[in-house]
Write a protein that binds this DNA or RNA. Structure first.
Lengths: 250, 250
DNA sequence: CGTTATTTGTGCGTATGTATT
DNA sequence: AAATACATACGCACAAATAAC
């Protein structure tokens, strides 16, 4: 899940990390088996031990391995399950440079009573745009964004949202935040289980009715006015939602 | 997720990372302001540039900074990407006031390879206790808590966990935190979709196989040692996981 | 029980490359 | 073109944890 700009050549440690990641995900080190030592990998790849260590730091951050001083490095994955969580939603959303947005339904005026209600509107009219988010050409998330009419009209000048199949690595809320008088101050997020509709299943490549992770986010500006409602579906077999909470900020 | 080991003194790069993390979270570098360069930090802390780089790798993995070659290191601005997660361990511990816990399976020694693995144990022996959480006499959550043997034995004096059908509005992690030498410092939470087993379905009053929200929490103490693994199933019809994300305006 | 070998962790120095200003 | 700043890569030394003898 580490970065890498697409254009540049892959560095040594990235190659090591990529190959080890593939082997782990393929179950070569299933049941927590031990990986080769730093020294062994360094000699077999013809790189220094530091380079191998750098690769392991990525695998560690990905949660794929456990390292125990004096003992060795062990894979965390159990091959007997289907669960391939080689990343988290947070990781993927965090680096917008890593994920690509492809518009599937252009920004348009729609009638949506539920969305309008959650946006605190009096009428039933909202502006909606739908898109998929991909990482490495693999779509992992389908989203629909609903906006109050005035916000929707504000964004109607954005070519990204009004051109078929257009791609970007921006975020909608980023676009909105730039143009708003009052900036975004707060978001309310709710995570539930949802089912894949026909269109969602088509985009994610799963079957209709599959249980998906559904994440709703309602963004509010400093005046506590809702400015965006985003409803996203994630395939939870591929991606889990991971959060790290810390205590003691000092 | 970060590494290592253990009872020893804090290392140099950890100190640098900790202090920078605190400063960022306190808003010292709010609005995406630039942090000192590697060289500046190295000289001011009296360490090498490599050590500063090691610290930045942790902050990068935490998603707290963005680094741009040729430009510098910047605190992640919440506006140009999205609003970041700021829950706290305290929030999780305070879950208890309006919900009630009923023990369904007493604290006991069990064999659980998966739980033991996630707790980083060498053997397969863990202590487990199961319970349901109710609100207004309606159960909405079924949890199983796995503990390392030494923690389990520590809690074996708690009447709550060793008496059939006992009720309380405490949290297990709260009980643990009181007795631990090293307090809880961090929690890793993973949210996925799970299916109701026979026993879970029985307690929640839903059908076997129903899709449920599954939340796994791994609590770590200040020495990064796992002390509790909680696996909970929520009926997503009754309960959705809500988070409020605030933005630091400063 | 201590000793030794293995393995990971920390820290530093150096050199070179690449991107930005 | 030059200076700045991050990225990669290698080398070395020593510390700390573990396991085996």
């Amino acid at each position: 899940m580490r970065f890498v700009a697409s254009g540049t050549r892959e560095s040594s440690y990235q190659k090591v990390a990529r190959e080890l990641r593939g082997q782990i995900l393929q179950g070569l080190y299933a049941n927590g088996r031990q990986l080769p030592t730093e020294f062994a990998l360094a000699t077999s790849y013809g790189v220094s031990r530091q380079t191998v260590r750098r690769a392991f730091q990525d695998l560690l951050a990905d949660g794929l391995v456990t390292r125990i001083p004096g003992r060795g490095t062990f894979a965390k994955m159990k091959s007997d399950t289907y669960i391939r969580q080689f990343g988290s939603v947070e990781d993927l959303m965090a680096l917008s440079t890593d994920t690509q947005l492809t518009v599937t339904s252009l920004l348009n005026r729609k009638i949506d009573i539920i969305a309008a209600g959650r946006l605190g509107l009096d009428s039933d009219v909202v502006y909606q745009v739908s898109f998929i988010r991909s990482h490495d050409q693999t779509p992992f998330c389908v989203s629909t964004v609903s906006l109050p009419p005035e916000v929707g009209q504000m964004l109607s000048s954005e070519k990204l949202l009004t051109t078929t199949g257009s791609q970007s690595n921006a975020t909608i809320i980023g676009l909105i935040d730039k143009q708003l008088k009052d900036p975004i101050a707060e978001a309310q997020q709710s995570i539930t289980v949802g089912r894949a509709s026909e269109s969602v299943a088509g985009h994610l490549g799963c079957e209709v009715g599959t249980s998906l992770l559904r994440i709703d986010r309602l963004y509010l500006d400093t005046r506590n006015k809702p400015v965006e409602l985003a409803t996203s579906y994630f395939d939870s077999e591929l991606y889990s939602y991971r959060i790290r909470l810390r205590r003691d900020i000092s």
